[in-house]
Design a protein around this nucleic acid. Structure first.
Lengths: 200, 200
DNA sequence: TTTTATTGATTGATGAGTCAATCAAAAATA
DNA sequence: TATTTTTGATTGACTCATCAATCAATAAAA
């Protein structure tokens, strides 16, 4: 069986399995054995490649972040106007390959874990800041800086909130409606500034 | 030592301890021993009164929900106009006795747990619906029903999102600003409807 | 003496991490 | 080319620790 060059393959399989199992159980109280089983290898191998459970989990979060960033970069490159860029960022937050019940659950589990693990927390802070600054960049082209800051903060929060509410599978609102709601928030606030600006 | 009538005292102490420990560690992977120690009793006693760890956790969530509901009812009773009621609901979400880092962390942990435990999930759904319907009730007095629904959904999401972002302790925004942001969202959307309504 | 409160000691299960051993491909050597 | 050596991949079996849950025993109140 042993073929050379398996390391990257196995690493990816384990990270994917971790995500799936965490999403499934919704908790980081998943076992290495379970993850390994899903990846089709022995628990010992998981330790061999990652050293510890913590490390495997960190790697899993990193892969989520990477995916999200890539999706965002791609989406941003496809459009040029600030309006379209805003829209793109919002859409990616919801449509990204991440947006599946499993993945939402995994994010939740990570948020929870962030209270214990400083490293996990740091990674999530990266996500939070990135989302905010992506929104901010486009907003600054559309309204004064301090308004942009407030709107970015609100939009980021709304996105996260809709996300978390999806995790309960009780929201009377789907993905498309979530996108519309967030876009509406951003756009109507910009409009309001304009009409105020011209009125005053 | 044994004094009669200790049951309610111990139950409360254990629930409080559970919340504190969960908040501290940010995970439901807390041990009964740890909780019991914080409550100043033996682990065996915790089992005696609650039967299982799961049951103690459920009870802990229930107590959070109860507190939140009581705070909301009190705040609503103190005012009468729809505007003030909206404001009150928003303020309670942030100012409630619940709003401490520990408690935020505990909520996160519960969200995560909800993926595994149907009962925990049900309790959180109760919270989500309650928040939404509290907002909705006042909104319906201020704008058409279907607009009210959308705004309520958005505001609820924003509240949850600001909440979750606080848990990372990275937000460049404090509690007062969070309240202002949410109120601003609600009010400006209502205003917009009015100006559109009169314009059209 | 019956009931309530309480715990120490124990059990049984589970899970992270270790390690020595195995197996096959590649590289080196004859 | 044939043979040996090295190296990467892989696992079964094991250790050690932890923890939920149990239970029998004790001590005070009623």
């Amino acid at each position: 069986m042993p073929k050379v060059g398996m390391e990257p393959v196995r690493r990816k399989a384990l990270v994917d399995a971790a995500l799936r199992v965490i999403g499934d159980q919704g908790t980081l109280a998943v076992t290495m054995s379970e993850i390994a089983r899903h990846a089709g290898v022995s628990p010992a191998l998981a330790h061999h490649y990652f050293g510890s459970k913590e490390q495997l989990l960190i790697e899993t979060i990193r892969s989520l972040l990477r995916q999200l960033r890539d999706d965002t970069v791609t989406a941003l490159r496809a459009v040029s106007s600030p309006h379209d860029k805003l829209s793109a960022v919002i859409r990616v937050s919801f449509q990204a390959s991440q947006f599946a019940p499993d993945t939402i659950a995994a994010w939740l589990a990570f948020y929870s874990e962030a209270q214990r693990s400083e490293e996990v927390r740091r990674l999530l802070v990266v996500y939070a800041r990135r989302l905010r600054s992506n929104l901010l960049a486009s907003l600054k082209a559309l309204c004064p800086d301090d308004d942009a800051e407030r709107i970015a903060e609100g939009a980021a929060a709304m996105i996260d909130g809709l996300y978390i509410r999806q995790s309960l599978r009780s929201a009377p609102i789907g993905i498309e409606a979530s996108i519309a709601l967030t876009e509406d928030y951003v756009i109507s606030h910009i409009d309001r500034l304009h009409s105020q600006g011209t009125a005053a």
